Amino acid sequence: MTLIAMNHAAIVDIKTKGAKGDGITDDGPAILSAWKDACAGPPPSSLFIPPGTYLSVAIELVGPCKGPIEINANGATIKAPPELAKFTKDSWITIRNVDKLTMTGGTFDGQGQQAWTSKICKDSTACQIPVNLRLSKLKDSLFRGITSINSKNFHIAFRGCDNSRVENINIDAPGNSINTDGIHIAKLNGLNISNSKIGTGDDCISFGEGSRNVRIDGVSCGPGHGFSIGSLGKYPNEEPVEGIFLNNCTITGAVNGLRIKSWPDSYPGTVNDIHFEDIIVTSVTNPILIDQEYCPNKACKKGAPSKVKISNVSFRKIRGTSSAKVAVKLVCSSLAPCESVEVADINLTFNGGQATSECTNARPKVTGQNVPGVCRV
């Protein structure tokens, strides 16, 4: 084990494990070897990736570790192979089963251009399309200053990462990149995301089943598909989504703004305690949208109502411009109509003129001054 003692911490430099940093040689084995030593070393420990450009095939950094551990990649760029044939699983860099991880800096380049244009992979189930960073069961952890670019699939996927924080991260991919959600969240309790910038080809942040107690503050989104709860109800026994608070964010040039979506003819599920407040939208096609008829492909059974119950939702102080005339659209289920939806103090215009609203199976509580006037049914 090669350790550098610094401030009573065990620091493992990947260069001591043979990493070349030339952007050509596969440095994945060196990163994995350094991780194993740092994880087994006396805490607090650190995996150090010096400034430079590194190439790495798919790797899994697995705990538990002896104590708090850091991955410090400030100034480093880590690139994935561009070829999909080099991936046999749906992840590029996986980190799992670690408590009190701090991940600082680094640019993670998925080199996803070939994946976006692949005819074989237009449906992500047709082949293995890797997520840039798959983070699983990382409790009480901090992720700051990270950049993810050109992911082949989702950029960052959180699952089971309770009581964690994300700060000052940057996510970037073209608006036409396929299925490149910026951050996907599922089956966790407690996550704060703040002061970050996301521009991609799909949802900036998507909330899957079991997302609980998530706070988003000071995040800019665009291009992309906005901030999306769901889609939900596609599979049986999905865990509830509840306690989502999104404040002080901007959405620019996106297909959607603030969206809750469920499949028609769905399995039962619940969405509860969802609050959007103090949001600025600019040239967004669907600024405020509840869509319980979400059906993007032929696998859906249109016409049969969703069984996902949506309740206790608020849209407050949403202002800016809609690129479609219908700026507020609440399409709820006839079988499980939305309950306790509040719309308050919105100001949305269409091409400098009057926008409109639509409601189906929804009786929103309307308070404050609202432009456009919000429908009542």
Rank of each mutant, 00 (worst) to 15 (best):
Ile4Tyr: 10
Ala5Val: 14
Ala10His: 13
Val12Ile: 14
Thr16Gly: 06
Lys17Ile: 05
Gly18Met: 11
Asp22Ser: 05
Gly23Ile: 09
Thr25Asp: 13
Pro29Met: 11
Leu32Ile: 04
Ser33Gly: 13
Trp35Val: 12
Pro44Ile: 13
Leu47Ser: 04
Gly52Glu: 04
Leu55Pro: 10
Gly63His: 07
Cys65Val: 12
Pro68Glu: 03
Asn72Thr: 08
Lys79Gln: 14
Pro81His: 06
Leu84His: 03
Lys86Cys: 00
Ile93Val: 14
Thr94Ala: 10
Asp99Glu: 15
Asp99Gly: 13
Gln114Asn: 11
Ser118Tyr: 08
Lys119Phe: 08
Ser124Thr: 15
Thr125Asp: 12
Cys127Glu: 12
Leu135Asp: 06
Leu138Gln: 06
Leu138Tyr: 11
Ser141Phe: 07
Leu142Phe: 13
Leu142Asp: 08
Arg144Tyr: 13
Arg144Gln: 15
Ile149Leu: 07
Asn153Asp: 15
Gly160Cys: 05
Asn168Leu: 11
Ser177Pro: 01
Asn179Phe: 09
Asp181Pro: 00
Gly182Pro: 04
Lys187Phe: 12
Lys187Leu: 13
Leu188Cys: 02
Gly190Met: 06
Leu191Glu: 02
Phe207Lys: 01
Gly208Ile: 02
Glu209Leu: 02
Gly210Lys: 00
Ile216Ser: 04
Asp217Cys: 03
Val219Cys: 05
Ser220Val: 08
Gly222Thr: 05
His225Tyr: 14
Gly226Phe: 10
Phe227Tyr: 15
Lys234Ile: 08
Tyr235Trp: 14
Pro240Trp: 02
Cys249Trp: 00
Thr250Arg: 07
Thr250Phe: 07
Gly253Tyr: 10
Val255Thr: 14
Val255Trp: 07
Gly257Arg: 00
Ser262Ala: 11
Trp263Ser: 02
Gly269Tyr: 02
Gly269Val: 03
Asn272Cys: 06
His275Ala: 08
Phe276Gln: 01
Leu289Pro: 04
Gln292Cys: 09
Ala299His: 08
Gly303Met: 05
Gly303Glu: 05
Phe315Ser: 01
Thr321Ile: 12
Ser322Tyr: 13
Lys325Glu: 14
Val326Gln: 11
Val326Tyr: 04
Lys329Thr: 10
Val331Trp: 13
Glu339Ser: 09
Ser340Gln: 12
Val341Phe: 03
Val343Asn: 01
Ile346Tyr: 02
Ala355Thr: 10
Ala355Tyr: 09
Ser357Trp: 11
Cys359Trp: 02
Cys359Val: 13
Gln369Cys: 00
Asn370Glu: 08
Arg376Leu: 10
